[in-house]
Amino acid sequence: MTTFLPTARAAHRPPRLDAVPAWAWLALQAAALWTHWRWAAARVADGSDDPLGVVALAVLAWAVWRMAPGLRREPRPGWLAAALALSVASTAAVFVAPPLAGALLAALALASGLAAFVPPARPTLPLAGLAVLALPVISSLQFYAGHPLRVVTAEASAWLLRIGGWVVERSGTALQVDGHLVIVDAPCSGVQMAWMAYFCACTVAAITGVADGRWLRRLPWVGVIVLTGNIVRNSALVALQARGAVSEPLHQAIGLVVLAAVCAAVVMVTRGDRDAQA
C-alpha cells in the first residue's frame, strides 16, 4: 500500500503514527483486552487447572521475539480488520458469554493483530493455535468433551481387549474385565494428551515454517492420532489392571511412552518439508 504524503500545512507535522513500531500496536491491543488476561491469570492461580498454558504462552512469546526484526512496517488491512472485529466481539462477550468464550475471542483477536504484522511467507495459524492453547482451557475441555471421549475410549478399549481374549463388559465408562472393575474416569480421558499433541503441532509448525493451508490440512490427523494413542494407553492399562494391581510408576511410564509416540507421530505429520526456509 503506498502512502500519500499530503503537501499541505499538515505536512510539517510528521506522520508519527507510521513510525510507531509494530510491537507497540500489539501491546496497545493487548492492553485493551486486559480484562480477559486478568480472568486467565486468576484461573491459573486458583489451582483449578494445570498451568500448562503458561508454557504455550512462553513458546508464543519466543516465536514472536524471533521474528520481531522482520515484522512488517505496514500491516495487512484484512487482518487488521479481523483483529478489530474480534476485539469488539470479545469485549461484547464480557457481558453475554462465559469468560472462556470472551478470552478465546480475545486470544484470536491478538493473533489476528499479530498476523497483520507477520513477515510474508511465515506461518500465522500456528501462532493463533498457541495463543488459544495459552488460555486455561483444559478444565473446560474436560468438562465438555471429557465424558464423550471417555465413552469412546472405553468402548474402543473393550473391543480391543475382547480381540485379545479377555471377557469385557462396558457399563457407562466403567469396564468389567474378568470380574475386576476398572473405571475410565476424568483423568483418563486423554484431554491432556490432546493438549500436548496440539501444542506439538503448533510449535513444530511455528519453528519449521509450514505453509498455513498445508498445516490446516494436516490438523485433523492430530486428532485421530491422539484418540488412537489414548485408546492404546487405556487398553494396556486396563489389561494390566485386570491381572492385578499396577504400581504407580508403571502407570506413569506407560502413559509417557504412549505420549512420546503420539507426539513423535504428530511432529512427523505436521513438520515442514525438508527444504523449508528458516
Binding site: 466403567a174 472393575l181 476398572v182 473405571i183 494428551m193 494407553r233 492399562l237 502413559g255
Partner: peptide, 8 residues
C-alpha cells in the same frame, strides 16, 4: 475402584 489416569 482402580482407574487409568494419564501421567502427571
Amino acid at each position: 475402584v482402580p482407574s487409568t489416569p494419564e501421567p502427571s
